[in-house]
Every structure is written in structure tokens, then in C-alpha cells.
Write a protein that binds this DNA or RNA. Structure first.
Ligand code: FES
Ligand code: FES
Lengths: 142, 142
DNA sequence: ACCACCTGTAACCATTGTAGTTACAATCGT
DNA sequence: ACGATTGTAACTACAATGGTTACAGGTGGT
């Protein structure tokens, strides 16, 4: 299965917060932009808030970046919205047969390979910062 | 969501075929080893067969590697059992709002980043061959 | 020719993650 | 006090997954 589109939506939201930092970014406004339901946006923003990436305040509307976009990389965003814990991108074969010569040792062997692959992917995400995304967006615009 | 455990099961199966190449590897035997249902094994073996990694024959029982384990890498196995097409590890935000300044350009921007991350992961898988796995297994055994 | 055994596949079920939606209490600025 | 907004809970619909049963068809031994 694919990685949840929450990740893509989260990047959308953060980009929008950066580009439109003058305006009042309510969940409804963002939802209109992302073309989905405001609650979906609030859910994602809730995750981003817990991760310390955005600030929100109930009552008064609008969210804003909690840190300068140059200091936010996509790995943090990924971690914030991914509820699978790190190291479990690949599902393990949960009930290995202890009597099986393969099963006894395969866990560790696969774990090493899987973790290496997962880290390689995450390192690529870590290289990209939010302001790079925003720059690409604005440049593509004109 | 995690990547389907079919991948892990496939590696199990292939390792077993390599290590136990003398025996008769019926789906039921493998299922006992993997500790699951024979039909699950047959499904995975079916995928591996379509990918040209194993040989099977209806009627007579048993599957066998179609190529020497040194020439089978984990990326091929991954591709064989992953029914999401390549390039879609990350789900895109499917209905971008054309009126949104972010939505207009974000597709291409994210696509580049996502593809880079996905490739990084796949390159790691491509580095590992089946006989390396089998070697690790046997060595850990004693 | 028969038979035991096996594969390949369809069908069905339970579980899980996800996105969308409605509803509403709590919160804040004016 | 009021209107707007957030934060959640609850519910629905849907797709992927893994397990299971069932069965048609192939294969080799006897
Ligand atoms: S436990 Fe996975 S093959 Fe034996
Ligand atoms: S934020 Fe995704 S389309 Fe505007």
C-alpha cells in the first residue's frame, strides 16, 4: 500500500502557510485550497501541531508555522503525520515458525536490510526543506 | 501504512527454496514453515512465477528458483509482489484545486522529491541478493 | 486407467487504515 | 453576548490485506 496522502496534504498545508503568511489561514480556507473537508485539514494540522511544526489557537482562527521554513525538512513532516512508528515501513512476517530453520534467523537478517532501505528513503526526505518546496512553487508559478 | 508482508513472505519462500533445494517444496510444506495458509503461499508464488523468479508445475508439487540466487536481488522480489505500480510509494493528493496557487505546481514538485526518495529505498534493495540472505541465514544458524 | 497429490484460482470473510462527513462543546476576539 | 473557529468524537464508505474453504484441472506412480 501507498504511504498515506496525509503526507502530501501536510506539505500542501505547510507550503500554503508559508506563502500566504499574511492571510488568515483557517481550516476552511485551506480546505478550499486543498479541495477537501475542513475536518481533514484540522486533523492533519493537529498532528503537525503536536510535532511542534505549527501554531494554532482555538477560537481565533488560523494556523502559522512554528519555525522558519528553512528549518523544517520533509522528514519531520513525514514523521509527524505517519502514525506507523519508525522502522516499520516494511511489515514483518509476524508469526515466524520457531521450528523452521529459516524463521529462526530471518527476522534479524530482514530487519537489517529493511532498516537500511527505510533510512535511505528518509535521508532523501531530510535533505529537502520547506522553503525549497515553496521556492519551487513560486518559481513554477510565473 | 506499511508495505505488505507479502514482501517478507516472498523472501522467506525464496530463501527456503534455495536452502532446501533438494526437498520437495510444496505449498503446504512451505506454509508449515512460514506458519500460514497454503493458499497464501500459492498466491505469492504465483506472483513470483509471473515475474520469472521461480518455476512451478501444476500437478507435480514443488517450486524451484528459476535463476541462481546470486542473480536475484530484493528489488526484483519487491517489484514482483508489490501491486502498486512503481513511482507510487507516496500517495499523491489526487484532486488538486486548479484555482489554488499551491495546487497548480505542487504536483511536479512533490513528484520529484517523492521519486527521489523512492529510488533511494529501491537502490538499497537492489544491492542485496538472495544468496546474501541465505548466507546470513545459514551462518546465524550455527 | 485409476488414484493420490498438488497447483491455480475463485469466492467469501474479518480486520484494518483511510478519507470524508456531520455534529457539537470549548475557545477567543470584538 | 455573539459569531467564527478549533478540536474531537462518531459515523459512513471504501479499499487492501490475510486467512479460509472449495473446487477444477494437471501430473506421476502404480
Ligand atoms: S518462519 Fe518464515 S519461512 Fe520459516
Ligand atoms: S493545497 Fe493542494 S491543491 Fe491547493
Amino acid at each position: 500500500m501507498s504511504i498515506s496522502s496525509r503526507f502530501a496534504v501536510a506539505i500542501h498545508i505547510l507550503s500554503l502557510l508559508d506563502i500566504n503568511k499574511e492571510g488568515r489561514n483557517t481550516s476552511e480556507f485551506i480546505a478550499g485550497s486543498v479541495n477537501t473537508n475542513p475536518v481533514v485539514i484540522r486533523r492533519v494540522i493537529g498532528l503537525l501541531g503536536k510535532a511542534g511544526l505549527v501554531h494554532t489557537s482555538p477560537g481565533v482562527g488560523g494556523a502559522s508555522l512554528a519555525r522558519p521554513p528553512r528549518e523544517i525538512n520533509l522528514l519531520e513532516v513525514y514523521r509527524a503525520v505517519q502514525n506507523d512508528p519508525p522502522g516499520e515501513l516494511f511489515a514483518a512476517h509476524d508469526k515466524p515458525n520457531p521450528k523452521c530453520p529459516v524463521g529462526q534467523n530471518i527476522q534479524g537478517t530482514l530487519d537489517t536490510v529493511f532498516k537500511r532501505a527505510e533510512s535511505a528513503m528518509e535521508n532523501e526526505l531530510a535533505k529537502v526543506t520547506l522553503d525549497q518546496i515553496a521556492f519551487d512553487l513560486v518559481r513554477g508559478d510565473r
